[in-house]
Amino acid sequence: MDFFFDLIRMKPETFYSIMEQMLEGTLQALEIFVYTAVLSVPLGVLVAVLRESKLKPVSAVTRFYQLIMRGTPLMLQLMFVMYGPYYMFGIGMNRFFACILAFVINYAAYFGEIFRAGINSIPQGQYEAGKVLGYTRVQTFFHIVLPQVVKRVLPPTGSEFLVLVKDTALANVIAQPQLFDVAKKTAGSTVSVVPLIVAGIIYLLMSAVVEAAFNHGERKLNYYQ
């Protein structure tokens, strides 16, 4: 063990203290990840449905929203949500709330596009078969169309989730504490590369878990087509 601490040129107390902060930061990053994932997926379904609306203004507004969210940096959006209300109206935002809000509206725009493509890939004949068998439109959508959409959108959704794991680091621009923030600060204070390497390993582990989960899901849905 001493050999290890010699190698990294760090006192055990320092190392353990860093690891403790890293753990804290990991949990905070996971918090951003989970809130964003849980909220942006259903919102993404809504975005997809609104985008396909027959009411022209509704689909136009949705499209404009998606353009802004996908066409500007997430970092800028975080800054805007956090400080915009203060600069414009003197309203101070809760940091964590602003962080989640920015992530959710950004990711919902991307998911909206993925889900829209998924819904459009289901042949019209499936809706017609549902209708002729007497299913209502809602039943047809939820029992016949949506399960097939889930299978088709799982791979691109998984990719977005992988990006989200790493994007949690962007919360740094509004000083929302999380893993990257800890890594940066402790690397500076100890003048060591160790915190950066540890943070990298943790991000990698989280990504691996997300990837494995989606692979598992894809395999489970492999029973047809």
Binding site: G125, Q126, A129, K131, V132, L133, G134, Y135, Y224, Q225
Partner: peptide
Amino acid sequence: MLDVGLVFQNFQLFPHWSVLRNLTDAQVRV
């Protein structure tokens, strides 16, 4: 609609359901 049946040129079976479920689901749900 419930008195009418239609068979499509390209079947339009529901791919995510077994043959049995394809035959039973509408009977139960509808």
